[in-house]
């Protein structure tokens, strides 16, 4: 009995020591800045820009002035996530189910290769592809004049799909890959046509992968500023753009902080809903964040 307690103490000490670096990292790098942001959000902009200590709700009262950024973000992020899912699913399905083992690895690498270059450069490239001397120029050659692609909502969505596709493809690929192919045969054997088998077996069993992919992409799209700035021509303004503007350009740190805090709250709510939905679902046992 005595030795058991001693062992237990030793174990918890070891656990504490091993967890210390992570805990410290979390406190210093994540929680502290967040606390700073929360404190700033109740302050005032000093005359020279930056932060002046105070306790006021003015910044939060001022939030409606950035309503457009909120509505844009809350429209484009879910829409972009959905479109990315629609593009990613067939690709992941093809990679997991249809491709022979020989080509699988090569194709998977090809999906990741764009990640080796910065998103900034890749998005910049799209400016040229969609811009006047890119696709519109080619279309003009075959008789379609004045096609505008760049600086449109479509360009922003395209950029989003392009930028985050691999993050959606991989979790779905993993869930389809580990799907027991015998389940598909069983469904077939029980009278399910290939299409019904897809709807009743493949799709529900790849749900955890889809949920993970959607969450990853959605969170990143909520904070996106590069793609709307480059491909939306400044007309489509996200919360991310507002933050860049407030912190770097107009140096209104307290208002920027209030905006940031609101964004964090929106994300927390969304993630909580996600957890509730997936944990409670029928495939709850397989929930995975990759």
């Amino acid at each position: 009995m005595a030795t058991m307690i001693k062992d237990g103490n030793k174990g918890s000490w070891l656990t504490a020591v091993l967890l210390a670096p992570t805990t410290l990292w979390f406190l210093v790098m994540l929680i502290m800045p967040l606390i700073v942001v929360v404190i700033f959000s109740f302050g005032e902009r000093s005359p020279m820009g930056g932060y002046a200590a105070s306790f006021t709700f003015d910044q939060y009262a001022n939030l409606p002035s950035r309503l457009k950024a909120f509505t844009n973000t809350l429209t484009y992020a879910p829409l972009g996530t959905l479109l990315t899912l629609l593009v990613a699913y067939p690709l992941a399905y093809y990679l997991a189910v249809k491709v022979s083992a020989r080509w699988k690895l090569l194709l998977l690498v090809l999906v990741i290769v764009p990640f080796w270059t910065s998103l900034l450069i890749r998005t910049y490239a799209w400016i040229f592809i969609l811009g006047g001397r890119g696709i519109p120029n080619l279309l003009e050659m075959i008789g379609f004049d004045d096609v505008r692609l760049i600086n449109t909502p479509g360009a922003v969505l395209l950029g989003m799909i392009y930028g985050y596709l691999p993050l959606m493809v991989f979790p779905i690929y993993v869930s389809l890959e580990k799907l027991d192919k015998q389940l598909l045969e069983a469904s077939n054997d029980l009278g399910g046509s290939p299409f019904r088998t897809f709807l009743q077996v493949t799709l529900p069993l790849s749900m955890p992968g889809m949920a993970t992919g959607c969450m990853l992409v959605f969170i990143l799209l909520m904070g996106e500023f590069l793609i709307p700035a480059f491909l939306g021509g400044g007309k489509i303004f996200f919360l991310g753009n507002a933050l860049v503007d407030l912190f770097l350009q107009s140096r209104n740190w307290p208002f920027g902080s209030a905006l940031a805090v609101t964004l964090v709250i929106i994300m927390l709510v969304t993630v909580t809903i996600y957890m509730r939905l997936t944990m409670g679902s029928k495939t709850g046992r397989d929930v995975s964040i990759m």
């Binding site: 027991d180 015998q182 389940l183 469904s187 077939n188 054997d189 029980l190 009278g191 069993l205």
Partner: peptide
């Protein structure tokens, strides 16, 4: 799916 036969699979293949 159009044959009048049914199979019991070695690992059962029950839908999880």
């Amino acid at each position: 799916h159009k044959r009048p036969v049914n199979m019991v699979f070695q690992n059962y293949a029950l839908f999880p």
